[in-house]
Nucleic acid binder design. Structure first.
Lengths: 193, 193, 193, 193
DNA sequence: GATGAATGAGAATTCATTCAT
DNA sequence: CATGAATGAATTCTCATTCAT
């Protein structure tokens, strides 16, 4: 244990950069967050950041890839399931849980879409959403039913960020929201209900 | 007709700046659009832009205020109606129409939230959304029913931008989407249905 | 009298530009005063200003030449007098009076020396001061006596602007200041006293 | 000696920026000196300047604070002395010496008053002058005597910059000027002389 | 692992001035 | 007499990034 507990844990810097960066990205947006600011808060020099990450974009990408693994897992899992009501509802349940664990990141991705569009992270995030969307819609059902399923996803996703505007207990609101999306996909599968 | 059709229509510049600006804002985002770029496309000098608008933000604000008047009208109208199912559905219908007329602007507002947060335009847009949200929710009903109404709005709003991902005729998809939101608020008003 | 008393007196504009310009020059400095600002206060267009004056510098020059005529008169008069104590004291008396009438302008000239150095107005003002200085000093007297006379002028000139820092009645302070300069030149003319 | 004399001495840049800046400030005035010009003369890029100073104003402030310390010392010292003729004369002697060491800076401060008024440096300089003025005047003596002391300061201060206009040896003129101010304060203290 | 120093590129904005009408 | 519209030139400043040590 000797040597531990010194001012900064060894190998910690990379993680600390990610933490501070995410916080600033969320609070001020990607473009309005400068590496100078990050460096100042961490009390390290700017080149120190470049030692750990090869660019500003790379910091964001690493954060995204660390946090978005659960969603990738949902997608892998979902692809191996039969595409029925049961599966769709389970996907929404799992997505809701995954979302909850990374609200700040996802809020950030949402609020900076225009900026991230040209970045790798933007593309990867977009693909995730598209993949989940595809797993929820059957192209051989009615347009309305397809939209119902898509809307369920949108409701879950964007509803999560609108919840703070409504009074009530956070967990309760979460469940209620999930409940509503369950109903929405159910309505798109009349025969299975 | 004499004198018309000259290189640049008189008094046109202000409008042309707004048009080009909106186009670039939508395509590249607010921060990544520079006044130099706008000026170059219009083949005018940068100060020419400053003659018509006092700042970059001011260009955006003027665009927003011009295009968002219909939404203001909806809000004024809605406030004078009884808050029942009928009204809510009419609000959604009208909002859907208003949205349709300014899809590019609203997409832009959505995709640049982080950037616009500190700008007047961000605040005004936020207030509009809040106002519409309030008109759709009754604080004395169940949490689930409140969320149903809120989700209807989110579905309509965000669904509009997700539609291109689904195959089918644009107008048809629009109506289907609106239809779904109608169901959602209806579900929140069991006794009135 | 018909036609008078309309919103703006005819031919008045030139004078009004000078007035507003001087006020802004004094308050904010020459460089920090823009023609836009002047035009806005007067509620005229910028080209209207260019109708009356050929440049920003020209506005200042016209103000200076109008207000500095009394000093030119002192110089003309002084050059025709014998260069003795009597004359010098009379010059200081007259300069004090002239100064009093145009305190704002002279304060402005003082506080913007660096800026005005390259301008015609700076050169003309400098020549005036040099001329008065020359009339007060005899190059065939002792260095100390020359400095005494020079200092009398500086005391009068700069003292005028330092007076507000000292409590007391304005007119009284003025006379006291003049009195001191009288003593100073008198000390430089021991035989004549 | 190895390693010395390379193109640019290490750690030198900050000082070199101050030197060049002061030179240009003095020669052309604060507003007419651009950072581009400073950078060009030093053959560095503009951001290099911003690495060492956070703004243009900050460059000036750093110069002022470095050079004005002697005057601060005089003020501290003076405040602990009895306020009599002896002290006042010593203050003037010390101020004359301090002034001599930083003639270019003080000339600059004088010639750019209007510009510097809104800047921190302007306020700090103003306070210095006010403090010295206060140490030279007793509010319980006659108005004329107060003015005599004040004028002594003005004579010393402004006379310094008028001296080049008078022929003679620089050091000699300096002493003569100081001598005159000594007489002026002495005249304000008849009983102590 | 880390830093001091520096850079190229580019941003928004302001100004005095002009010209056609 | 006056204006609407526009311009060339310049300004301060910020950013992501790099390199020698």
């Amino acid at each position: 244990m000797a040597g531990k507990g010194t001012k900064k844990e060894r190998g910690d810097t990379r993680r600390r950069i990610q933490d501070v960066a995410l916080e600033l990205f969320v609070r001020n947006g990607y473009e309005k967050t400068s590496l100078r600011e990050i460096a100042e808060i961490l009390e390290v020099s700017k080149p120190a950041i470049y030692y750990h990450f090869k660019s500003k974009e790379d910091i964001l990408l690493s954060i995204f890839q660390d946090l978005s693994r659960p969603v990738d897992d949902i997608i892998s899992w979902g692809r191996q399931q039969p595409r029925n009501l049961e599966t769709k509802q389970e996907i929404l349940r799992r997505y809701s849980a995954a979302l909850e664990a990374s609200v700040p990141l996802v809020r950030f991705l949402r609020e900076n879409e225009a900026t991230l569009r040209d970045l790798k992270v933007g593309k990867e995030f977009g693909q995730q959403m598209t993949s989940i969307g595809e797993m929820l819609t059957d192209s051989d059902t009615s347009l309305t039913d397809q939209l119902r399923c898509m809307s369920a996803l949108l409701t879950l996703h964007f509803g999560t960020f609108a919840l703070p505007n409504i009074p009530g207990d956070a967990q309760e609101k979460r469940s209620a929201l999930l409940e509503i999306t369950m109903e929405m996909v159910a309505a798109a599968h009349p025969e299975e209900a």
